[in-house]
């Protein structure tokens, strides 16, 4: 068996950091997302999810922190994933720049909407 081992040293650019971020955030996302869905979908269940349930959740600082973490890591992982897929179909530098700006805008906008709702909670 031939073992190839190549040691390289270079300064990581943005795309290399993004590549690494996808893998590191994945390690965090499996427990974050699965615990979220196991509790809400399998234990609590659709029949018990209503405005009152969400209000109780978002009145608790622990769940607010949990949901903010979930929103931050899941959505950034997702939008960057979409960016990678779209870049596979886009060669021109200009088109990639436009896509980058649109995706950044989409990411910031939805993150702000979600985070403000989580932190704002629900008045009973």
């Amino acid at each position: 068996m031939i073992t190839l081992k190549r040691e390289t040293s270079f300064k990581p650019n943005y795309e290399i950091r993004a590549w690494k971020y996808m893998r590191l955030s994945a390690i965090l996302l499996v427990p974050l997302v699965w615990i979220h869905t196991i509790i809400n979908t399998l234990i609590v269940g659709a029949e018990n999810i209503n405005l009152n349930f969400v209000a109780t959740r978002w009145a608790n600082i622990g769940w607010q922190v949990y949901d903010i973490l979930l929103l931050t890591f899941a959505f950034s992982h997702g939008v960057n994933g979409l960016r990678q897929v779209l870049f596979d179909f886009t060669q021109s530098h200009t088109a990639r720049r436009i896509l980058n700006m649109l995706l950044l805008l989409f990411w910031i906008l939805l993150s702000l909407v979600g985070a403000s709702a989580i932190l704002g909670g629900i008045e009973k």
Binding site: I49, F75, G78, V85, V113, G114, S116, A117, I122
Partner: peptide, 30 residues
């Protein structure tokens, strides 16, 4: 699966946000 999950997540963020911004709409959508 990634694109499907992102589509779901985007709608999920907007839907759950209505619980804060428009509670009546949340109950109707739910």
């Amino acid at each position: 699966s990634g694109l499907g999950t992102l589509l779901f997540l985007s709608m999920h963020i907007l839907l759950e946000s209505t619980a804060h911004y428009a509670p009546h709409l949340y109950e109707r959508l739910n």
